[in-house]
Amino acid sequence: MLLRLLLLICAPLSEPAGVPVSDVSLETQPPGGWVTEGDKLVLICLVANGTGNITFFWYRGALGVNLETKTQHSRTARYEILTVRESDAELYFCTADNGHGPSFSGLVPITVRIPVSRPVLILSIPDGQAMVGHMVELHCETLRGSPPIWYRYYHEDVVVWSSLVQSGGGASFNFSLSAGHSGNYSCEADNGPGAQRSEVVTLYVTVPVEGRMDHFPSGVIEGTLGSLGPITGALLLCYWLKRKIGRRSEDPVRSPSSPVSQEPSHLNSHATGQLEPLYENVNIVSGDEVYSLVYQIQQEQEPATGEHPRTYVDIYSRPRKANVVDVDYDDTM
């Protein structure tokens, strides 16, 4: 009888007192298990039912690597990862025990979002120069960052194209060049934590000469082309005169036959020691003008041995007349 009474007294001492823990759960901050690399992650273990001191355990991975153990008179406990790294992306769970046996939470996945690094903008033309009508590719890619990533292309700080990329590899923008595509280009990568802009790439678009002439007034083009005829004729005339004078200086005895002249007769003066004028019409340039060559040879009474007469040349021009016959005396000499 005494032994039975002792057993009844001692039996409650061997069993834990209070209410066992139940309905254990694991919550995260920030909510949803999404955290950016470098930020702080908090794992909160909650007990819905239980009394007394409770011991909390936090585990990482499905196999359960223990991270932290705390005992406190509370149904809530916190475990913090102050600086999250990419390697902290894993499954986590916790347990709680107040002496009646552990109670487990469910598995909670933690996703670590990697911010994008500064993207690189690559132009398919290495020197940045191309002609109108050429196809050009702009490729923007960030070397680091969690997808999905938004890529935006800017021309002089104005968005011209965008694309959402669900996996790695970057985005490409292709277009045919026009004169208005010259300028500075850049791209931007953004996956949520913060956008990053690339360096500026300059594109030079060359307009063909034919295309640029279309922008000039027709009168300017016609005037420019029309002025080439007299200039060319003048150059040819200078070249012809140089050869003419050279041949006369080599053969001073040679004298031209009487020219067919319509000029005043006072030019034909033959006084000894004076200038002897000769002239002839030169039909070098086609058009409404006739160029006349007038050269004067000074005859000295007693020229020194080996010396040649001096020659002076003048050039005149007059409008062509329909009944005038131009004679090139170079052909008759």
Rank of each mutant, 00 (worst) to 15 (best):
M1A: 15
L3M: 12
L6N: 10
A11G: 07
P16Y: 11
A17T: 13
G18M: 04
V21I: 05
T28L: 02
P30N: 04
P31I: 06
V35T: 07
E37K: 12
G38F: 02
G38Y: 04
L41P: 07
A48L: 07
N49C: 05
I54E: 04
A62L: 10
N66A: 13
R75F: 03
R75H: 08
T76L: 10
A77F: 02
R78Y: 12
V84M: 05
F93M: 09
C94A: 09
H100S: 09
G101S: 06
S103D: 07
S103F: 03
S105T: 03
L107K: 08
V112G: 03
V112N: 02
S117H: 01
I122Y: 00
S124R: 09
P126M: 04
L138A: 05
L143F: 03
G145T: 05
S146V: 03
H155T: 00
E156D: 08
E156R: 04
E156P: 00
E156H: 03
V158I: 07
V159M: 08
V159T: 09
W161Q: 10
S162N: 12
Q166H: 03
G168T: 10
S172C: 10
N174M: 15
L177Q: 07
S178I: 06
S178M: 08
G180A: 11
H181Q: 07
C187V: 01
A189D: 02
P193L: 07
A195Q: 08
S198I: 03
V200I: 11
Y204W: 01
V207F: 01
E210W: 09
G219T: 15
V220P: 10
I221T: 14
I221M: 13
T224M: 14
I231R: 14
G233I: 01
L236T: 12
Y239E: 13
L241H: 09
G246M: 09
D251K: 15
P252R: 11
R254E: 10
S255E: 15
E263Y: 13
P264V: 11
S265F: 06
A271P: 05
T272W: 08
L278W: 11
V282T: 09
I284E: 11
V285P: 00
E289R: 10
V290W: 07
L293N: 09
Q296H: 14
Q298P: 05
E300D: 14
E302W: 09
P303Q: 08
H308E: 15
R320W: 04
D326F: 10
D328A: 08
